[in-house]
Design a protein around this nucleic acid. Sequence first.
DNA 1: GTATATTAATTGATGCATCAATCATTGACC
DNA 2: GGTCAATGATTGATGCATCAATTAATATAC
Lengths: 142, 142
Amino acid sequence: MFKCSKEEELIAARLFELSKQTMPKFERCTGISQSRLEILRELFEAEEITQRELQKKVNIDHAAVTRHLKQLEEKSMVIRRKSPEDNRFTYVSLTEEGKTKIAAYCEEKQRFISKILNGFSELERSTLLNMLTRIQENIEKM
Amino acid sequence: MFKCSKEEELIAARLFELSKQTMPKFERCTGISQSRLEILRELFEAEEITQRELQKKVNIDHAAVTRHLKQLEEKSMVIRRKSPEDNRFTYVSLTEEGKTKIAAYCEEKQRFISKILNGFSELERSTLLNMLTRIQENIEKM
DNA sequence: GTATATTAATTGATGCATCAATCATTGACC
DNA sequence: GGTCAATGATTGATGCATCAATTAATATAC
């Protein structure tokens, strides 16, 4: 029958619950959503980048990226300008204000993650990372 | 600085990406969302249960549960009736049709999960489950 | 050189989750 | 017994993600 009580099922259930619980708590603790912080982090590392490139890196829908950037622009955290060579492209970059703010967010994030992985040894961490990576590879194959 | 390149950060990033990628793929593969399937699974095991109890078990917002059940009722998969003893409570149960359908969903789910955990040994699975459980405990403490 | 295809960005429609407010029912206290 | 608090369920408002369609600019083919 489909009692679904195997260990596999439990792992899946944990993964699901984990994301369901973590997402909102992350946002409350850090004051920003994971998606948005990822966008900012990417911008920080890239200095200036086209929306298209950014979208590919963070792997979020085009539309979502546009909307995030619009809101970030309203908050004066990013600046956008059309590419002079090709007007279809839009370059995005952080403002000074944005760079300052992101530092605080990242620190909050770091604190959050440390709490989540509390009690994990170095060895366990790398084992876990390895496993998660393998799972992700499996998913990408589908 | 806040380069955030530590292993901890990578684990968090993986967890985040994982849920972002898994959720929609799960839905496409199985034809149902994880939340909704969890509700159905709970109903299957409980036979008859109040919405309140169901909500506590699946740990989804009250409003979301109400809306799921409404749609499931429209699809003739569940039946709801007011408790005679206390009219505030609503008992929910699967229809025969619902029970049949859930079997197919569960099989799809099982197949999906097996693919995700492809290449994991028994030992690795229990290690992973253990780690995920510990992370969840850490989250609950926050 | 003009029509067609491609690509980036945006907008609209939809689905789902949450929170807050409301409604209905029951229980408790005076 | 009547008022008030507590509880379950529902509804409305909001936020965020996706897909589909549209717009604007560029590249390609004839």
